[in-house]
C-alpha cells in the first residue's frame, strides 16, 4: 500500500504493508535510529515520537494509521548540526547515562514544552511518566526540562 506522511519536515512516500509497526518503518526503512525499541508493548517509552503534535509510541502504531500525518523524531530536532535546546539541557543537567532511553525522554519533553512552556515539577513528572529510565533516578531529567524551559523563555 502507498503510504504518505511527513517525517522531520520532509515528505515520505512508501510502498509497504500497512500493518507494520511505525517503529520498524522509521528504523529500517528510513534509518531513523534514534527511535529505540525497549519493550515492544508501550511500557518503556523509548520509541516515543511526536505524531501530529502528540507524543505517541511508535511500537504500538500501525504505519497505515499515520497516513497523511506529521512525525517528528529526535533527529528532526537537530538544526544545522546544533543540538536542540532540550537535547543540550539533557547533556548539561547530567540527564544522560546509558543513553538508550534518552531520545524518548527528549521527545516527551518536547511535546510537553510545546503545550506548556512553563511547566511546574508536577507537570514535568506527569509528562515524563510514560518513559522508563533505569540509570538516573529521574532527578536530572526533571532538572533538564526545567533548564530547557528556562532557556526557551529567555
Amino acid at each position: 500500500m502507498r503510504i504518505e506522511f511527513e517525517v522531520n519536515n520532509r515528505p515520505v512516500v512508501l510502498d509497504t504493508e500497512p500493518d507494520r509497526r511505525l517503529l520498524d518503518v522509521l528504523r529500517d526503512d528510513l534509518g531513523l535510529l534514534s527511535v529505540k525499541e525497549g519493550c515492544s508493548e508501550g511500557e518503556c517509552g523509548a520509541c516515543t515520537v511526536i505524531l501530529n503534535g502528540r507524543a505517541v509510541l511508535s511500537c504500538l502504531t500501525m504505519v497505515g494509521q499515520v497516513q497523511g500525518g506529521r512525525i517528528l523524531t529526535s533527529e528532526g530536532l537537530v538544526k544545522d548540526g546544533e543540538l536542540h535546546p532540550i537535547q543540550k539541557a539533557f547533556v548539561e543537567a547530567g540527564a544522560v547515562q546509558c543513553g538508550f532511553c534518552t531520545p524518548g525522554f527528549v521527545m516527551s519533553s518536547y511535546a510537553l514544552l510545546q503545550r506548556n512552556p512553563n511547566p511546574d515539577e508536577d507537570a514535568i513528572k506527569q509528562a515524563l511518566s510514560g518513559n522508563i529510565c533505569r540509570c538516573t533516578g529521574y532527578a536530572q531529567l526533571i532538572e533538564a526540562v526545567q533548564a530547557a524551559a528556562k532557556a526557551n523563555n529567555e
Partner: peptide, 9 residues
Amino acid sequence: VGSPQIRNM
C-alpha cells in the same frame, strides 16, 4: 489510564 503516550493513542 496508562501513560501520556497511551492516553494520546
